[in-house]
Design a protein around this nucleic acid. Structure first.
Ligand SMILES: [Mn+2]
Ligand SMILES: [Mn+2]
Ligand SMILES: [Mn+2]
Ligand SMILES: [Mn+2]
Lengths: 218, 218
DNA sequence: ATTAATTTTTAGACTACTCTAAAAATAGTT
DNA sequence: AACTATTTTTAGAGTAGTCTAAAAATTAAT
């Protein structure tokens, strides 16, 4: 089907399209892929040849229909494997990304179908991100960054924006986990740091933290 | 560590060393890898540079200590994944090879350690082949081909020599499975075909079959 | 509207892996 | 021993993917 490198590019473009809906720039993609702009131009041309992206010189790229389908399929596999690693093999949520990054490229329809069933058709990965179904449909979630809430409001922690090990370990250390309720007691206007209630205890968190935690209000 | 291609070569050399203990020839390796002799020579040089094989022109290759360790590690991963596919995901034993061929290249010590534990430290894969432990030690088994037994002898079916889907499906069709007892009722001297007792029923099998079934006598 | 800074693309080169065709070495045969 | 057949290696080339350095296009600033 697609090469490992092509798949990683498709996934990167998909993720960047949220921030750059008008087209993903060569530099943004180079940054995301930890490579050089010239390499990106090269790969974009190949993806364009294969009709996986729409590309006009100097205008950035957008995924085509089949490009997006391929990207979503890889994301589905990535997230299912993450669930497997955490739920079945006892990995911590900050340890799964690197391995899932490899496992997502395994090619076998039956494998992913049976894995999905084995995991009991999970809807979200360990970081709260939605797992698209086999047709590529995402569960939509009305999530909001904790930083966007006001004093007195509360909600349930359902995801992280930053999922680097460092941030995830910070959350672990402070007993902030998905599913827990957080209510805002105070917001310091100077630096937007918050005093929150978590597990009945008060906790002070900086704006860097609240800007990377997704909350479900409803 | 090693590239996907290097790992496949190491594994192929390991397997061929059983048949060619004095050195694996370029052609034998080309055949096994479904590639051309010139490509093999090329790769052998690279492996030799990296001290993974001992190579003298026109003399064939042998694995070095580290080469053998690498090969065994890949075989360990291959067989553990096969167990996972059959025991956990419900694959049939003739469906696992292709996928395990990909999964064996995933790089993560923790992954394979936890997978081993999750599978409850299996000693054999779905085809009866021994799974080396984390130090590379194989369980030795005093197995013998069914074709080597004489009339009146019996034993337990513990492995297959040929593990192509075709052969495995033949076995399934005739209810020959690992763990079952087989006793030899008659051997036709002309073509070495056998009349065997399996599950209390009589079954006629050709020499092609008996030459690919491993039996534990003891 | 020029000029300057930034972004993007091209040109050329490199590695890993593969192939075909030809040369060299080895093994087999008279 | 000389010839033949087979095996193995070399030579040269191609693809995928990457890089650096330089050119071209776009964007921002005077
Ligand atoms: Mn990846
Ligand atoms: Mn995730
Ligand atoms: Mn493989
Ligand atoms: Mn096997």
């Amino acid at each position: 089907m697609f090469s490992l490198s092509e798949e990683n590019y498709l996934k990167a473009i998909f993720h960047l399209e949220r921030s750059f809906p008008t087209g993903v720039s060569t530099n943004a993609l180079a940054e995301e892929m930890s490579t050089k702009a010239s390499s990106v131009t090269d790969m974009i041309k190949r993806l364009s040849e294969k009709k996986l992206v729409a590309y006009k010189k100097y205008q950035g790229v957008k995924l085509s229909k089949i490009g997006r389908e391929a990207a979503v399929d890889i994301i589905r596999k990535h997230r299912l494997w993450e669930v497997f690693l955490v739920d079945k093999l006892g990995f911590a949520w900050d340890e799964v990304h690197e391995v899932a990054e490899q496992l997502e490229h395994i090619k076998s329809d039956k494998l992913i179908k049976e894995l999905d069933r084995f995991l009991d058709f999970p809807k979200r990965d360990p970081h709260g991100d939605p797992i698209p179904d086999s047709k590529g449909n995402f569960a939509i979630s009305n999530k909001v960054l904790l930083a966007e809430l006001k004093k007195g409001e509360s909600g349930i922690c359902i995801g992280v924006k930053d999922s680097t090990p460092e941030f995830l370990q910070y959350l672990d250390k402070n007993n902030i986990a998905l599913g827990k309720e957080i209510s805002i007691l105070e917001i310091e206007s100077f630096d937007q740091s918050m005093l929150i209630n978590l597990n009945g205890k008060e906790l002070k968190i900086s704006n860097v933290i609240s800007s990377n935690l997704y909350i479900k209000t409803s």
